[in-house]
Write a protein that binds this DNA or RNA. Sequence first.
DNA 1: TGCTTGACTGAAAACGATTTATGAAACTGT
DNA 2: ACAGTTTCATAAATCGTTTTCAGTCAAGCA
Lengths: 341, 341
Amino acid sequence: MRVTIRDVARQAGVSPATVSRVLNRPELVDEQTRERVRQAMAELDFHPSAIARGLSVRRTDTIGLIVPGITDLFFNELYAGIEQAAARHGRKVLMYNTENNAHRVLDAFSFLKQHEVDGILYTSALVDEDFDPLLSRIGIPVVLALTESTAKTPLPAFKVDERRAVFDAIAYLVARGHRRIGFLGARLPNEITGQQRYEGYLQAVRYFGLETGDTFVEYGNYRMESGYQAMRRLLERQSELRLTAVAAVSDEMAMGAIRCLADHGLRVPDDISVMGFDDLRVTAMITPRLTTVAQPFREIGARAVERLVELMEQPEMASAQQGVYYLPHQIVERESVRALL
Amino acid sequence: MRVTIRDVARQAGVSPATVSRVLNRPELVDEQTRERVRQAMAELDFHPSAIARGLSVRRTDTIGLIVPGITDLFFNELYAGIEQAAARHGRKVLMYNTENNAHRVLDAFSFLKQHEVDGILYTSALVDEDFDPLLSRIGIPVVLALTESTAKTPLPAFKVDERRAVFDAIAYLVARGHRRIGFLGARLPNEITGQQRYEGYLQAVRYFGLETGDTFVEYGNYRMESGYQAMRRLLERQSELRLTAVAAVSDEMAMGAIRCLADHGLRVPDDISVMGFDDLRVTAMITPRLTTVAQPFREIGARAVERLVELMEQPEMASAQQGVYYLPHQIVERESVRALL
DNA sequence: TGCTTGACTGAAAACGATTTATGAAACTGT
DNA sequence: ACAGTTTCATAAATCGTTTTCAGTCAAGCA
């Protein structure tokens, strides 16, 4: 059925080994023979089986990617960065989606091991208890993006400094006269980022001496709908809170918040300022354009795969340069924040 | 290095064949032995190599997915539908991104053949000349989603009736008193959808006798930025056009258009109505909420993989039920269209 | 007792590539 | 003409599974 290397060999009047060589080390075979083989390949429409090759060389040139979901709007940019960098290094990517389900993380690793990926890029939530034993037997490099390791074995990680990023966001608001600032946080099981962003908020509150308690924060799950709901809960206490601004942990939640505000007859930024997080492509188009702290998704993805490729090529380097590498975030000023006074 | 079926066999004191059997046909092996083998697998942290298995059974349970890009906002929903349906049928998906580059289509097929996917789900642009010879040798089922075949060999396709969908959109506007309706179209090389949507617009123009010429249409590439630019070009002629409404071929372009309108001091829908296409999740949140024609992305993806799985399991059925299957679109009324009069 | 049957298990041959020895020519320089 | 290199090509083992075929063993039956 399938055209194999033997078929090509027969057609070209050479041995399978020679065909294999024109595939992998063409310089080792005589030009005439090489051409004859190439011709045979074309005639037969031969496609070498990556599967057979993988079995033979015990390497698939594939990166396993574990993601928590694919319908979040930031996913596209992250994935684009990953895919391009992978392609640049001649690697494919095999994706596994845990759908924010902590116990699918085990499945994910198992799945990727079965498929013999050469390394794993992990962007999902962490499951502390299980993670350490998992990593000790994993046998292939693992690097993190958008998250960091709480496990004893630290892993290379690429992300922004979450605490500092939201601290900066709050500082930006404070610099514009805001002191009653709500926070739209996020809490997901086994997810660390939401916690860190909350800490950034707290640090800023303390640093600037804001009159702000836990009543100023409501939680969601990063998605628009949850931003809407969280904002609604904040608004129920607005007479007491007297918020002039609100900072969200994601652009999606910020957009939900803006929608909620509009539905309650409040204008952004005239009545309340809103600050996002991520800098999704869409946020430059909406009304009002969203002021937000930009995360370099593409670069995060790219750097993570580059590190991964290094480790795949030099496994002995595994212990060097572990730990978190912070990529710079950046506040992008648009229209959703008003300067008071 | 890697734990193989032989290692497990040795550990459990059985033959490799038996281990393979507990993996694939556990009912064929004695309960005691089965348990012993399972235990050995757990102790050794054994993960059967999908690659070796694939080589042996000549089937990878994988669907190859060809997409034109991943940064368009509709991608997420489509992919979610595909992935879930694939998982439901025990299939993985291997994605290849042509990045809207027509000559990468050949690469895509070659890549997927190398990886021995059992079927191909194609959502990219079509390259007429090359497509027919390609399909005749492909040897595995191919189904289309979001596009349709212009080739002589018709392929199963799942999509909305593009012409009818935009016809309905225009009809919706006409029913609300609009007669000077601009059209934000899309033209991409080898892409058929944009053409079909334009035809839908034309049909509506004729059907309703709208006073509308080619000056009422401007083209983009489905993305927000291009929608902005296309709208800007339309606006340059607004004194002559006197548009009261504009229909776009994508929500992204509609969003760009709204932004452009706002930047020119025009309000939506008060001054000009805007109609989108796709029903992206985000369009229910923005201001104004976008009135649009909804495409059932998830279902399109799901139906396409289900058809594909059928064909993979019954290759002889290949000739039955070819051609385009239209899934219903639906106008979702929100705020961006105003009724005149 | 001897024979049939059924339930389990094992040996070995694929699957389609790569790669290591090994060997045959063809080319050196004397 | 001959040994010593190079250059090019092949045979055969290997990667980790699946699966066919055959074989063992115990139970059931007459």
